[in-house]
Design a protein around this nucleic acid. Structure first.
Lengths: 215, 215
DNA sequence: TACATTACATACCGAGCGGTATGGATGTGT
DNA sequence: ACACATCCATACCGCTCGGTATGTAATGTA
């Protein structure tokens, strides 16, 4: 066991998942080629179909074990663990383009890409993707709700639909920037979203008013 | 000619375009099957490849001759021809779900679907799709600019990035509602967008404040 | 050490795809 | 009426895809 045996099923599975994520992110799920993924990893169909019964199962695993985890580390957890969730939300919106590989502007959000492609075609994809997006929406809603209790969000804000709108607009901004192939468009859009969230804050609390990165 | 001759190339071409639009709208461009389209229309490959050299050319024609025209009739032209463009914009946002087939909530925006799928893969698609989206953004920007001249939009609003954000959020709302398979989510999201646009209006002008459909 | 199970590699298959070559039917200009 | 271009139908091709059947080496178990 300790001398690094040749067969390491967990690592093999993880490696396949990572390369599958990349291929799917670049080509979309349907256009993603099993053969290409295997070619990249240097493995064969025997390995892949030992760990995943079908291409669909591989796609679903990518959603749960790669995409969800990345979003959690990037957005959900910081919001959850923050003591000033509204400030954290604003900071994430303002700096998200720096915390993600620059090529992601061209490739778009992996979650949104799959949602647009697969939701209408496959119920299992739809369910998993909706679940992940639900986490996103919930993370924002919790941040707003906690902000209201802290008095930094106006009491008249209806947090649930507001969070839904923020998450939707967020995905929309990423999608359009991807289409435009323009980091500037992405920055501009996210700045507007930033302003929208700031507009939800209570009037007295203008401390974080001009925190947005200069430009 | 007058007795409805058997060969009507224009109608044939248009028929192919319409069925291709439906197939692409439902399956996406790559998954759209030429064979399926022909099966639906009752035609053959001879007809299709006489009018369109490749599948790509068919897709590009669908963008310019179907999607663009529909968006123009539904959104761009009403905004352009309106004398109160801001009110018109608000009205479109508030009633868009009634002016479009109900199944479109499940299928999403044809433009956005193609943008998400094809922009990263094909430069010609990217160019055409960006052009159409640019019309959208420009239509909103013009509406806001004219609104500013009329005094109904606050002078401090920067119309260009604001229009970009509105269009992006708009597409985002459609995309998320499609993923959720929920007309209610769509209505909720668009209501928030409606509120955002209202927030751009000058304070004195509260006439259209509560125009949003009851619910 | 003997054996069963896991973890892969290799070769192969049917199906559906976009695209083409060819031929015939229809309209058009002269 | 004849030549010709347009319009469309049919049959076919090469390719790639996801998936499988089979074999084999490594690993866990007794």
């Amino acid at each position: 066991m300790y001398p690094m045996s040749t067969k390491q099923p967990d690592l093999t599975r993880e490696k396949i998942l990572q390369f599958a994520f990349c291929e799917i992110h670049r080509k979309g799920f349907q256009a993603a080629s099993i053969t290409n993924i295997l070619q990249d990893t240097g493995m064969t169909k025997g390995a892949l179909y030992h760990h995943f019964p079908t291409k669909q199962a591989l796609g679903l695993a990518v959603i749960d074990e790669v995409i969800k985890k990345r979003l959690d580390a990037l957005i959900f957890r910081p919001l959850r663990e923050s003591e000033r969730p509204v400030e954290t939300l604003l900071e994430i919106i303002a700096t998200i383009d720096q915390k993600v590989p620059s090529e992601y502007v061209m490739l778009g959000c992996p979650l949104n890409n799959l949602m647009q492609e697969m939701s209408a075609l496959d119920e299992l994809f739809q369910a998993r993707l909706s679940a992940v997006f639900g986490l996103w929406q919930q993370a924002i809603e919790d941040a707003l709700t906690r902000g209201q209790k802290q008095g930094v969000i106006r009491p008249d804000v209806d947090c649930q639909p507001t969070a839904l709108f923020i998450a939707s607009a967020w995905e929309g901004c990423i999608g359009i920037a991807k289409n435009m192939r323009s980091p500037e468009v992405f920055a501009s859009c996210m700045k507007q979203l930033h302003g929208y969230v700031r507009g939800l804050q209570s009037e007295p609390a203008v401390a974080t008013q001009e925190q947005y990165k200069g430009g």
